[in-house]
């Protein structure tokens, strides 16, 4: 049997499958979507002792959707592992801290395998779904794990399915049986068969904020950290001027183009009054905030606008 691209599977409109033949059609649909959906499902490793989650690639240039409690913050560097074991550095973009949605970007040469997002919000209660993820962490021999279930509860910002998830699946993709991405795994209930997901609509409504590396909301899935520039500084004893002695790799200052030797003159509208002043004022900022820094390099003054990272 062949279904049109946008047509609904007939078995989704049955209250329950009526025969083994109906189940075989569910199986055929799921199997047809597995190769593409598996290839786009990544393990996200957060660094030593911080565990891992999952994510899914949604564009050929490596845009990833995941959970906020996996990405953990804005502008952080984590690592993506493809099903074949290839690793890429990933920079986290924005997140919605009160629904558990997040975006990240692979920093590597594409094209990457990716899946399509269901932009029509065409999923209905009772539809058959499949959950993918790197359950319990990356395992090359095992590969990506798939589980079958139905969509059993729907609210505007949370969906529940009866496929089972476990630690490591967080941030992984929920698909309909056309292989369209319909949600991201967030958390599970205390009993088996209760899995909660962030629906795609929540990502689509906040797409610009996510892409723009904004930290949206007040938790509970991610906490804002105080602003972090990523430089080592010294203060001239006589003039009180603050200069950069070292620019830390991969942090905000480096991305903004600041260099060792630059003398920092102002933060925002106000002039800097020594190194303590800089530290105090940065602490009042949070990760993801944009700041303008005035500086002097080789006698010439300039300004740079940069987005602060976070510091634990």
């Amino acid at each position: 049997m062949v279904w049109g691209e946008s047509e609904r599977h007939y078995f989704n409109d049955l209250r329950a499958p009526e025969s083994v033949e109906d189940l075989l059609n569910i199986e055929r649909a799921l199997k047809a979507q597995l190769p593409v959906t598996r290839a786009a499902t990544v393990c996200l490793e957060l660094g030593e002792e911080k565990g891992s989650g999952s994510g899914v690639i949604v564009s050929a240039n490596g845009l990833i959707l995941t959970a906020a409690h996996v990405s953990g913050g804005v502008n952080r560097t984590i690592e993506a592992v493809m099903e074949d074991g290839t690793r890429y550095p990933v920079r986290t973009l924005g997140l919605i801290s009160d629904t558990d949605a997040a975006m990240a970007q692979i920093e590597g040469e594409g094209p990457f395998p990716f899946v399509e997002i269901d932009r029509e919000n065409s999923t209905l209660l009772g539809d058959w779904i499949m959950s993918l993820g790197h359950s319990g962490g990356f395992d090359e021999e095992r590969g990506v794990v798939v589980r079958l279930g139905r969509l059993v509860r729907m609210a505007s910002r949370t969906w529940q399915t009866d496929g089972d998830l476990i630690g490591g699946d967080s941030g992984g993709p929920l698909f309909d049986l056309h292989g369209k991405l319909i949600g991201i795994h967030s958390r599970v209930g205390k009993v088996k068969g209760e899995s909660l997901h962030v629906p795609m609509s929540n990502f689509l409504e906040n797409w610009d904020e996510l892409l723009g590396s904004q930290f949206v909301g007040r938790g509970p899935f991610a906490q804002r950290l105080s602003g972090y520039l990523g430089v080592k500084i010294e203060e001239d004893e006589e003039s009180g001027e603050v200069s950069i002695t070292e620019v830390l790799e991969g942090q905000a200052a480096e991305r903004g183009g600041l260099q060792a030797g630059d003398v920092l003159l102002s933060l925002g509208e106000e002039e800097l009054k020594g190194s303590e002043d800089l530290v105090t004022r940065l602490k009042k900022k949070t990760e993801g905030d944009t700041v303008v820094l005035g500086y002097r390099r080789d006698g010439e003054e300039g300004e740079v606008e940069l987005k602060l990272g976070g510091h634990e």
Binding site: D100, V152, R153, M154, T158, Q160, R187, V188, L196
Partner: peptide, 15 residues
Amino acid sequence: GAAISMLGSVFGQSL
């Protein structure tokens, strides 16, 4: 904490 608790129960329609 996030993984084992039902943070924000789901209302709305249910199967």
